[in-house]
């Protein structure tokens, strides 16, 4: 299975994502933002960081990057896309996942470890996660408060579009609507989440729960390849 990690100018979790995807056993390669060739990747990761400096608003410039057209085509073809933190912001700005990410209600950058509930384990991103299992991983962002009109939130929940919620005793770290930490697009192949699974992929770093996501994706990649 091949994983492409997109590198925007200002991406700063690209190396971490490459490391975790490699550790998980995928063939992980970086793809420059000016490229339109995803090198046959099964999974595309948009990593965290401050793409293009995040001037104006997080993710707003990156969505005009040449690579985004290729990612859109990849998603339309049913390819897997995972946006982490800034990558989630880029996906939301590009309309590939619903919602918007606004400033944390604290009006501060928030870094801390959080506990996530997994709302569905029948998706390509979560199928290796035992039901009822919560995940520990860090968040690190200034604009992670998930926003969507109430009616759309109802619809999102009704279609099973909420994948992760903040569920620990530490509560909701950024004021996200309905404690939402990660969502799925309508096709179920594109996921954005604010917490960082790639930073929680080895026990020495405090948690290896993030590896469950990568394992899920490998299983899913293997299945889609088998189906192809």
């Amino acid at each position: 299975m091949r994983t492409a990690v997109v590198v925007f100018p200002g991406s700063n979790c690209d190396r971490d994502a490459l490391h975790a995807a490699t550790l998980a056993g995928t063939d992980a390669i970086p793809v420059w933002h000016e490229s339109t060739d995803l090198a046959g990747a099964d999974l595309v990761i948009l990593p965290g960081g401050f793409a293009y400096g995040d001037y104006l608003r997080a993710g707003v410039l990156a969505r005009f990057s040449p690579v985004m057209g290729a990612i859109r085509d990849h998603a339309v073809r049913g390819g897997l896309v995972l946006g982490i933190c800034n990558g989630f912001q880029v996906l939301a700005e590009a309309g590939l996942v619903p919602g918007a990410l606004t400033r944390n209600t604290s009006l501060r950058f928030e870094h801390r470890w959080v506990t996530l509930s997994v709302e569905r384990t029948d998706t390509p991103f979560t199928r290796a996660i035992p039901a009822g299992r919560t995940l520990r991983m860090p968040i690190a962002h200034g604009e992670g408060s998930y926003v969507l009109p109430d009616a759309d939130l109802d619809a999102l929940e009704a279609r099973g579009g909420v994948l992760f919620r903040y569920a620990g005793p530490e509560g909701n770290p950024n004021g996200s609507a309905r404690d939402i930490a990660g969502v799925l697009d309508t096709g179920g192949r594109v996921c954005g989440l604010m917490p960082h699974p790639e930073r929680a992929a080895e026990a020495i770093l405090g948690s290896d729960d993030g590896m469950l996501l990568f394992r899920s994706l490998i299983e899913s990649g293997a299945r889609s390849m088998a189906a192809a």
Partner: peptide, 14 residues
């Protein structure tokens, strides 16, 4: 203070 600092980027912070 430290909540305002990203302490885990780089995936090497033990």
């Amino acid at each position: 203070v430290t909540r305002q600092y990203d302490a885990t980027v780089g995936a090497s912070t033990v």
